[in-house]
Design a protein around this nucleic acid. Structure first.
Length: 628
RNA sequence: GGGCCCAUAGCUCAGCAUGGAUAGAGUGUUGGACUUCUAAUCCAAUGGUCAAGGGAUCGAAGCCCUUUGGGCCCGCCA
């Protein structure tokens, strides 16, 4: 509860006052104040102004007066500001004690929004024909961060990764291996996923452009892939599995993990589509075209002026979007589960068990990875298709928000970075393209960051042994990358610049991690563990109070992040925490104060800050080293 | 032609959901602070017709409409 306690107390009292005045249905706010306006503010007087035919200022004074008679423990005084706001000043002695003692609990920051209900978060879902690039990373980090936040909010989260192992892009890769003589072993120990994406895929698609007769080969391969027992399909499975494990290694390295891998090829073979198709036919959600340009097709009618969407072609085959429908329904638990489950062959970090679907009934494991709600993280370019899925699912489930497409803008390359990859864009940013080889691989960004952070850490810790430096550099590199991907809002395009992405100053993860390292050092050097028996009246400095207050706001931000599916809220909170701590650090001393009581009090704050920051950073998947 | 998104300081972005006080950070530039709990830090200065116009409101960066500029999507491809 922490700071929320005083907010709740004020809210209750204001409601009582309104009740006494026989006023109801006023949705006033009670929020932490802007600096300089007390601790908590309410807009209640503005909202009553019309009804009571008085100025907000007069109303604020009236309520302020009535508030004196309310029972309260955490509010010291109220103030009717001339602007009309009603401001409250906290009894910091009591509030500090409350916040500090709660901050030591494991469940600090927990909020119960999910009520232990199930929710599915699907993210990553990259074609297994290439290495992950920086655009994929945004998706992955959004999804992973969100799943961590939802857990904090008492949801039972299943994280899924959909493996599109049967599409055209896979066929292209197979064409490369089977017809253009690409060796199955990459040269010079190159990672297999990089080799497939950078070399095999790019060069194969290049050849299509110069020789259109190759289309025939491509079509044949695609056809052969449909039969799961064909040599081509078996070969493709071997190749995509190899790419997949490399992709997963990239994710695991970034502290991202999953609960289950779902393979598209299995969804197709499971027969789920025909069941769903019958169902939507029965519900009249699709129509058969007897005339017009889509004659012979099954379509979903476009709303308003939108085009109809073809679901089944006139030759009877299902289109791309049709594959998404059974999967979405499966995720919501709307269909009988056709899958069996087996453990993935490689272990994830932190011993989280990774399952994968299989159609092989020898695997008797019964698992349930479906959810009452589903969040699918896909970039905004697929908004149109996702909208169709969302409205279909709303009809199946008769709950409008059971299926949510969490949309985000894509990552583009800055003109300078595009140029470094050989594309002159005339000063404009550039869209990434796997086909044209125009992308920045996630692994290479991590490697560059690692190299730089190792240097920087060495510079600051010349005595440290190299494995320790390596570990620290890893956490800083992962943190930097994750923070850059999550700190801005989902609707902002990230223009990725290789040079700027290596910055470690200012609003970055290292800034936040550094604050943690500073706090840790103080606690280490103090050579005693802080006792919670604190004389809170000793804490008077503004920087002390600001720090405790910010610590107390943790759960409020978690709530905000969950309600708005907005992971950046937590990133901003971590940054806020670091800012107030750095200010505290510069302004007050903690050690060698020759006042044991005061020293203990400040140590308590530092400790509370440290564990709160760790918890908040954990929601971002970022680890803060003890030294850096 | 239809649809979605963006526009706030030189640059990158918060704030907009739920209208109300003094529009905030970072970065850049300029100046200052390491014999001190780590300077990946801090302090200060600098920098804003909140794209434009209109509307509703006692009150708009925020809500509604229009316009402009930019990005993306709209295949019997995936």
């Amino acid at each position: 509860m922490a700071f929320k306690s005083i907010i709740d107390e004020i809210e209750n009292n204001l409601n009582k006052i309104l009740n006494d005045l026989s006023i109801s249905d006023v949705k006033f706010t009670v929020e932490p104040s802007k600096p300089g306006f007390g601790d908590v503010s309410s807009n209640i007087s503005f909202l009553l102004s019309k009804q009571l035919k008085k100025s907000p200022k007069d109303i604020a004074e009236m309520i302020s007066e009535k508030y004196q008679h309310c029972s309260n423990t955490l509010v010291l005084k109220t103030e009717a500001h001339q602007s009309g706001y009603l401001n409250f000043f906290a009894n910091w002695k009591k509030l500090n004690q409350l916040i500090l003692s709660e901050s030591y609990l494991d469940e600090f920051g927990d909020v119960d929004i999910g009520k232990n209900s199930t929710i599915v978060v699907e993210h990553t879902s990259v074609n297994p024909n290439k290495a992950l690039h920086i655009g994929h990373i945004r998706n992955i980090i959004i999804g992973d961060t969100l799943s961590r936040i939802l857990k904090k909010a008492n949801y039972k989260v299943s994280v899924l990764n959909y493996i599109d192992d049967s599409g055209l892009q896979v066929a292209d890769l197979i064409v490369g291996f089977k017809h253009f003589g690409f060796d199955q072993e990459p040269p010079n120990g190159k990672k297999f996923d990089h080799y497939c994406g950078d070399d095999v895929y790019v060069k194969t698609t290049e050849k299509y452009e110069s020789d259109s007769s190759l289309e025939e080969i491509r079509k044949n391969i695609l056809k052969e892939l449909e039969d799961s027992n064909s040599d081509t399909a078996k070969f493709a499975n071997k190749i995509t599995r190899r790419v997949l494990v490399n992709q997963l290694e990239t994710c695991w390295n970034l502290s991202v993990s999953y609960d289950c891998l779902n393979f598209e090829s299995q969804i197709i073979r499971s027969g789920l589509w025909s069941k769903i198709f019958e169902k939507i036919k029965g519900m009249n959600l699709v129509e058969f075209e007897n005339e017009g340009k889509n004659v012979g097709c099954w379509v979903i009618r476009g709303v308003d002026k939108e085009e109809d969407k073809i679901i089944v072609r006139s030759n009877g085959t299902a289109t791309y979007i049709a594959k998404d429908i059974p999967y979405a329904a499966w995720k919501l638990g709307l269909v009988e589960d056709p899958f069996h489950y087996q453990k993935y062959e490689k272990k994830q970090p932190h011993s989280r068990v990774l399952w994968q679907t299989t159609l092989d009934s020898n695997n008797e494991s019964v698992k349930n990875f479906t959810g009452e709600k589903v969040i699918t993280v896909i970039d905004s370019r697929q908004a149109r298709l996702q909208k169709i899925i969302t409205s279909l699912m709303a009809k199946f489930k008769s709950v409008s928000d059971a299926y949510v497409h969490l949309s985000y803008e894509s990552v583009t390359l800055s003109a300078e970075t595009a140029k470094s990859l050989g594309l002159d864009t005339d000063g404009k940013q550039a869209q990434m393209s796997g086909r044209r080889g125009l992308y920045v691989n996630a692994d290479s960004v991590y490697d560059l960051l690692k190299k730089k952070t190792i240097e920087e850490t060495k510079k600051r810790n010349p005595e440290m042994d190299s494995s320790e430096i390596e570990k620290i550099a890893h956490h800083i590199s992962v943190g930097t990358l994750r923070y850059e991907m999550i700190k801005q809002d989902l609707d902002k395009i990230i223009t990725f610049d290789l040079t700027k992405s290596l910055s470690l100053d200012g609003d970055t993860a290292p800034y936040i991690q550094y604050a943690h390292a500073r706090a840790t050092r103080i606690l280490e050097k103090s050579e005693r563990s802080p006792s919670i028996e604190v004389d809170f009246s000793l804490l008077q400095e503004k920087s002390e109070l600001d720090l405790i207050k910010t610590i107390g706001l943790f759960d409020i931000h978690v709530r905000d992040a969950v309600n708005n599916l907005s992971p950046k809220v937590i990133a901003r909170y971590c940054h806020d925490l670091a800012v107030v701590f750095n200010s505290f650090y510069e302004h007050v001393k903690v050690l060698e104060l020759s006042d044991a009581q005061l020293e203990n009090s400040r140590l308590c704050i530092v400790n509370s800050f440290k564990i709160t920051l760790e918890k908040a950073l954990d929601l971002l998947g970022i680890v803060a080293p003890d030294r850096m």
